[in-house]
Structure formats: structure tokens, C-alpha cells
Amino acid sequence: MRILPLLAILAFAQTLHAQSIFDSELWVSSKTGVGTSSPGARFEAKGTSATSSVFQVSEVDLSPAVRVGPDGTLGLSTASAARVTVSGAADAGDLALELRGGDLYPATSNYQMTAGYAGGTLYRHSIRSKHATSVSSNSLTFSVWNAADASTAIGTREVLVLLTHSTGTTAHVLPPAGAAISTYTLQLIVSNGSGVGGGTMRRKSEGTVSSALIKDGIRSLGPEAERQAYEDVRALRHVGFRYKAGKGRKQRGLLFEEAPATVRTPEKSVSVDRRLLNAELAARGLLRELAELEKEEEGLR
């Protein structure tokens, strides 16, 4: 009778050293180490060179719900192809990744997602979301790091904001507030894949912000400006051409080097707005001359 407890203990010890099977629950109130005798966390699983998965939580069908591979990749419902890979099927209503840390408008205290460089927190670009219970002020903001930011800071240069208004939504190309135009000469570049700025835009109409409320130093342009504009329009040397990059269609236009200064921009492009303004000024001068000629002709009758 006394030998039975001893046999039971010996049998238990043997199971521990070969393969331990706990047919009921196992509770460990202290730390648990798997593959390590000195766990560095409440639960540590340490792989070996022969391990194909270091840690895995399996679904009922034994497919991996969470898997950490020996290469340090994390797979959710899949083996990992990237550092983090998430499987799913949006067509079946699956959402791959949900980030719940958004700011409640008007707070701007943090970011939802940052992208850093080479395994560190350097030069981080970011996406920030703002949420409001109203129709307006919901936004996604894309910011880019640049050298004016501290190297470990999250970039503060807001480049693009997707924004809701009371009447709809807008994509807003938006350099940071307070930055001078001379610092950011171009805000939106539309390229065609073969040349910078060689792209085409399609839209219904385009406007120039023009209210006196946002302007300083307003000064009327008189007849001299009309005369100069007329001379500039007359001096235009229109050309047909193709852009060197790619094999685009033949186009008509001007050469920057030959264009009058009044239509050239500091960033070395020819401004459509300035050309139009020159044409308007020139046309006004022409109309006046035409009216005088008609008056003269009337006198000759």
C-alpha cells in the first residue's frame, strides 16, 4: 500500500522528463519558459534552429490564427511573407487591419500609423485620422518627414488631407501652414510616368482664389499693362513638339526659354493663368482700338 504513492511519483517524474501530457488544465502561477529555463517574460517561447514556428495559436482546424516564425515574422491567419502579414477576404466582409487610436476632432495629439526607416524610428512619415460625430471635419492626413524635423520625430509636413465638409468631401493638397510659397514652389505635380509634370489633368473647371480679403497691396493695372500684354502676346512663338520622355502625342505650346517674363514662373514653367491674363489684357486693348476704328469709319461714311 505504501509503495503506491512512490510508484505514482516516479511515474510522474518520468513523464516530466520525456513527454509531459496534461490531460486536464495546467495552471502556472509563476513564469513559463518553453525552450528556455530562464523566461524573460510571463510566458516566453524560445525557438531552436529546427523550429519552423516558434509560437502559434491554432484554429479548430489547426490552421494558424497567430504564428511567429523563426525569422521574426508575424502571420495572422497565414504564413508570413512580410514582417506582418494579415490574411482575409474583404469580399467576404473581412477587415484586415483596424487601428482605433484616432483623434476625436479637434484634437491632434497623435497618429494612427507611422512608417520609419530601416528598423528604427528615424524619418517617420505618418497617417493621422480625425473623427467627428458631424458630417464635417472627418479627415485622413498624410504627413511626410523632412530635414526640418528632428530625425526621430514624426514628420510634420502635411502633404495631403482627405476631408469631409458639410456638403461633401475634398482631397486637399496642403503643405504645412506658415510655409512660404518660395519654400514650396509647387504643391501638386501631375506626371505621366515618363516625365515630371508631364501628366494630364481632367476636371470640369478650375478656379483661382481671388477675394480681396486674402490679398495685400492691390494696385490697378492700367493701359501700360495692356500694351505690354499685347506686345507679349504678339511676341509669343508657338511651337509643335513632343516631350522627350516617352513617345507621347504631338502637342502645341511654348518654349520656356522663348516665353516672355510675364508668363514664366520661378519654378521654370509657363503659367496658363498668366497667359490667359495677358490674352485678356491684350484683347481689351484690341477692342478699344477696334472701337476707335469703327468710330473713324463711321465718320468716313
Partner: peptide, 16 residues
Amino acid sequence: VVSSGTVYAGGIILAA
């Protein structure tokens, strides 16, 4: 809307 750093909708667009 294309803004500059200082003016709402005051930005410049470059396209052929």
C-alpha cells in the same frame, strides 16, 4: 484644393 503653405487654395500645379 491645392494650397500653398500660407494661402488656402493658393498652390501651384505643374502639369504638361
